[in-house]
Design a protein around this nucleic acid. Structure first.
Lengths: 116, 116
DNA sequence: GGCGTCGCTCTGTTTTTCCTAGCGACCTCT
DNA sequence: AGAGGTCGCTAGGAAAAACAGAGCGACGCC
């Protein structure tokens, strides 16, 4: 029974599957990446990710908020505003995202690596 | 130019964006995760990721192969077969995926963390 | 011969993502 | 004040992606 570990033909990590439950959606990874650089407003987010539409960003933000990764805060200053920021859970994803960015930087270089 | 770094309001890492170019697609992350555990055939992959359909898996595999992350090998033994495996580039993503799985395991456990 | 598997493609339907336009409230410029 | 811009967000319909399911040619099993 010691080699019981080999019975499974091959199974996908449930955790990984769970993670890609939202990372597998078109923009989620990117908004988390932007947010990992600090809190941002709706429009800042929109510009930062570039190419996302209002409706989709709104959806993703709600989703991420529901998942407990980002927190929506209403700033009641004179000019009312809304700020999105990572929660503790979301922040703990930052290093992973960072590592992923590093990997992409040196392994998917079909794009000019020195251009700006 | 030293403080030029602050001019950008907030921009998404190009590398991160590039990475999510395919990680942001529904199953890509998962098939890479399975493949990171070793080579697999079409049907093994299908079972491992669970829930994906043939057509989509076929698409993703082609995509990943084109991106240079996985390699398709035709085994010309008596029973012809096709095997998919990670390339060097794909393998280098494994630790990231691993870390992501670890993060998911302890941060998105709305699911029983000690059940099996 | 009948049946199942393998890798993969094709058709038609559902889900996701996208574009465009609009809302109320605020700010700025004139 | 008036005109016009930004802010956060929603609504409606179109395009694209993902889906289920059947099918193909070649193979092995009994």
């Amino acid at each position: 029974m010691v080699d019981d570990v080999q019975h499974e033909p091959r199974a996908c990590d449930a955790a990984l599957a769970h993670a890609f439950g939202f990372l597998g959606k078109r923009w989620n990874g990117m908004v988390l990446g932007v947010l990992s650089g600090g809190p941002a407003t709706f429009s800042e987010l929109r510009r930062a990710v570039g190419g996302i539409s209002d409706s989709v960003l709104s959806d993703r933000l709600s989703e991420l908020a529901t998942a407990g990764l980002v927190q929506r805060t209403v700033d009641e200053g004179p000019p009312v505003g809304v700020t999105y920021a990572l929660t503790a859970t979301g922040s703990s994803l930052t290093p992973v995202l960072d590592q992923l960015a590093g990997w992409a930087a040196q392994n998917l270089p079909p794009r000019c690596p020195s251009a700006g």
